[in-house]
Simulated assay, not measured.
Amino acid sequence: MGAVKYLSDPGINGSHTRRLDGTEVQKFVAPKATLMSYIIKGILDQRLPWALVILGVMIAITLELCGISSLAFAVGVYLPLSASAPILAGGLVRKLVDRHLADKLAARKLSQAELAAESDKSPGVLLASGYIAGGAIAGIVIALASVFLRPFMQRMSQWAETHNPFYSGAYADALSLIPFVCLAVLLYLAGRGLFLSGEKAQPNGTPSPP
């Protein structure tokens, strides 16, 4: 008689999306954890491709000598396009806000470091930090709901597939694009101090002291 064997497939970075009975298993992706596991396994097994590591170091040194941030370049190469595109959109919003701030403070003749410090004090930075924290919390909530509220999540998914034409198919991303644009506009307004700034403008246009 054969021995019974069990396959243990983790919920994070797992490879099997269906059980033996045909039911679907939701898997979650953690690219950072995957990268670190590759590095740790490579070091422990002494199979780390050092040629690629050294090549990456040389590219980073070349970028730094050219005045380009090697960290930003590496993040853009490492992350998939679905994750780097929102980062690019956020960078464009920050660029527009910084340009407005530079024009606003042109009379003070601040240096680049002082302008960067003023930009970091913008309400938009706080709002962007809230976006990051909210995204992390939402991911945890969705993961917990998929485990403890699986029947409810399945019913919601079935209802959305039936009644929501944008839930799946070629235009599935159009529905999520609407709140994304709203969040970007809200971030831009907050960065310019037009929203959630906590300041009240005086009749002459200058903000009142706190």
Rank of each mutant, 00 (worst) to 15 (best):
M1F: 11
A3W: 07
V4H: 11
Y6D: 09
Y6W: 12
L7F: 06
L7D: 04
P10K: 03
P10E: 02
P10H: 02
G11V: 13
N13V: 03
N13D: 12
S15R: 15
S15T: 15
H16P: 02
T17A: 12
T17D: 08
R19G: 08
G22R: 07
G22C: 06
E24L: 09
V25L: 14
V25G: 03
Q26P: 03
F28E: 04
P31Y: 02
P31V: 06
P31I: 06
P31T: 07
T34V: 09
L35V: 13
I39K: 09
I39F: 12
G42D: 01
I43W: 00
L44C: 05
L44A: 09
Q46C: 11
R47I: 09
R47W: 02
L48W: 00
L48H: 04
L48Q: 00
W50R: 05
W50C: 05
A51H: 10
L52G: 06
I54M: 10
L55W: 11
I61M: 11
I61F: 09
L63K: 01
E64P: 01
L65C: 10
C66S: 13
G67Q: 03
I68G: 00
S69E: 05
L71D: 09
F73L: 06
A74H: 01
Y78C: 07
L79V: 03
L81Y: 04
S82T: 15
A83Q: 14
S84Q: 08
A85R: 11
A89F: 02
A89H: 03
G91A: 08
G91N: 08
V93Y: 00
R94H: 10
R94L: 11
K95M: 10
L96A: 10
V97P: 00
D98N: 13
H100L: 05
A102D: 03
K104C: 03
K104M: 09
L105N: 06
A107H: 14
A107G: 07
R108W: 08
R108M: 11
